[in-house]
């Protein structure tokens, strides 16, 4: 070892909690997607569908309220889409959690850095997805 000081902060408590958060988010999302898939296949499993031509999904599957409304009505595709939204939310929650964890450690530089990442993510999700 040389004399230069290397003092990496101990992040292992943060690491553990983030790991749990990610695992919970993925499990929840996968469960919702599977439930929606079963609903969808019971209703439309016998239909013949081709995805060869791109038409884009209907507007009700592109907006958050449209997805929530369809999911409440028990539409299988909307329930799958809800699970997908949960999956997308998982890494966003991870970044939000990091902002809070760095704030608790009083590491203001990394509060700002993770805050920038969170802002970019929210811009992408809120700025493009219609409510």
């Amino acid at each position: 070892m040389n004399s230069l000081q290397i003092a990496p902060p101990d992040d292992r408590v943060i690491d553990k909690r983030i790991g749990l958060l990610l695992r919970f988010g993925v499990m929840l999302a996968a469960t919702v997607i599977a439930c929606g898939g079963i609903l969808y296949l019971i209703h439309s499993g016998a239909r013949v569908v081709s995805y060869h031509h791109f038409a884009g999904t209907p507007a009700s599957l592109r907006s958050i309220t449209g997805i929530a409304l369809g999911a409440v009505q028990g539409n299988g595709l909307s329930v799958i889409q809800l699970g997908i939204l949960l999956l997308i939310a998982t890494p966003v929650a991870r970044v939000l959690f990091s902002v809070l964890a760095f704030a608790r450690e009083r590491d203001w530089l990394y509060v700002v850095i993770s805050g920038i990442v969170l802002t970019v993510l929210l811009y992408s999700l809120v700025g493009h997805t219609r409510l």
């Binding site: 599977a34 929606g36 209907p58 592109r62 595709l77 909307s78 890494p91 993510l121 999700l125 493009h128």
Partner: peptide, 19 residues
Amino acid sequence: AASAGVFLSRGYIQPALVM
């Protein structure tokens, strides 16, 4: 996740296929 919002709003996320 950063590009997912753009993909979703453009209609690229087809749930029957994603599932």
